[in-house]
Nucleic acid binder design. Structure first.
Lengths: 157, 157
DNA sequence: ACAACATGGGTGATACGTCACGTATTCCCC
DNA sequence: GGGGAATACGTGACGTATCACCCATGTTGT
C-alpha cells in the first residue's frame, strides 16, 4: 500500500445492508417509543418515565428502593433518577423517606395512589407492547433479538 | 367460559422470554444511543440531531431540502424539524432560503461550514457505529434485525 | 484521630421532543 | 372563480435528558 494512502486508515463505510439495518432500528425504536408513550398517556396520567419507575418499585420484594438502586435497575444516570423522582413526588406516585442506615441516602416509597395507577395502567400498556411489537415477531426473531442485544450490551460495559 | 370471567378480557402478560427481549432492546438502544452521542460530541461540535439532518442533506442530489422532505426522510415530526433546523441555523451548519415555487415553503441549504463539519465527523462516527454495533453482529443477525424492524414499522403506519 | 478519597444524592443550565395552536398559501371542486 | 379543506411551516409551553458541578456523609489507610 502506498504511503500516501496508509497515512490515514481507510474508512470502512457501512454496506447497504448494514445501513438499512441500522437506520431501520433507529426509525423503529423512535416511532415505537413515541407511540407507546402516546397510548400510555391516553389511558393514564403516567408518563413513560413514571411507568418505568413504578415497575421498578413493584418488581422489588418491598415496594421501596434507594435512589441508587433505581438508577441501577433502570440503567439511568443518578441525576435523571433524582429529577424524575422529585417530579413523581409532586404528582403523588411516590414519597421519600429518610434512610437511617446511611444518612446520605433516602428511600423512595410507592404510595397507595402510585400502586393504584400502575395496576390500572399495566394491562393496557402490556396490550400495546403486544399489539405493536411482540405479537408481530416470531419466537425465532425474538430469540435472535435477545442474543443480539445482549452481545451489544456486553461491549458497552 | 363463565360470564364473570368474560366480562373483562384476560390480560396476556409477557412471557419471561418476551420480557427479556423487550427490556433488552430498550436498554441496548438507550445506552447505545447515549454512547454514540457522547463519542460524536467528543470529536465534533455536532449533536446527534445535527448529524442526522446533515446526513439527510448530503444524501440528496443537491445539498438542500424542503422542511417536509427532511421530516419524511428522518421520520420526524414537522415541529421537531422546525426547532432543530432553527438551532442549526444559529450554529451555522445550514441556512434557510425562501422557496419561489411554493411561497409557504422554505429551503434548508447546507453551508460550507456544515459540509466541513459532517465530512470531518462522519468517519469517526461510522467507526463508532461499527465498533459498538454492526461489527458485533453476524450477517444473519443483521438480516433478522432488518426484517423484524420492517415488520414492526409496517404496523406502525 | 485525621486526611484523602469514595459514595449518595441534589441542582441549574442547556438542549431536546411533543403537543396545541396559529398563520400563510395552495389545492380542488362545484 | 370563490370558498372550504389541506398543506407548509412556525411558536410557546411543558416535560424530559444530560452535563457539570455541588454538598454531605462514609470509608479507608496510616
Amino acid at each position: 500500500m502506498p504511503p500516501s494512502l496508509s497515512a490515514v486508515a481507510e474508512v470502512r463505510w457501512l454496506t447497504e445492508d448494514e445501513q438499512t439495518a441500522w437506520r431501520s432500528l433507529i426509525t423503529m425504536y423512535t416511532r415505537l417509543h413515541a407511540q407507546l408513550a402516546r397510548e400510555l398517556a391516553a389511558v393514564s396520567d403516567l408518563t413513560y418515565g413514571d411507568y418505568g419507575v413504578l415497575v421498578a418499585l413493584t418488581d422489588r420484594p418491598e415496594p421501596r428502593a434507594r435512589m441508587y438502586e433505581l438508577a441501577d435497575d433502570l440503567g439511568w444516570e443518578r441525576s435523571r433518577v433524582s429529577h424524575q423522582v422529585s417530579r413523581m413526588v409532586t404528582r403523588g406516585w411516590v414519597r421519600k423517606e429518610r434512610c437511617d442506615d446511611d444518612r446520605r441516602g433516602s428511600w423512595v416509597v410507592l404510595t397507595d395512589r402510585g400502586r393504584g395507577a400502575i395496576e390500572a395502567a399495566a394491562p393496557s400498556h402490556v396490550e400495546s407492547v403486544r399489539r405493536l411489537f411482540v405479537d408481530r415477531l416470531t419466537p425465532a426473531e425474538l430469540r435472535t433479538l435477545t442474543t443480539l442485544t445482549q452481545k451489544v450490551l456486553t461491549t458497552l460495559d
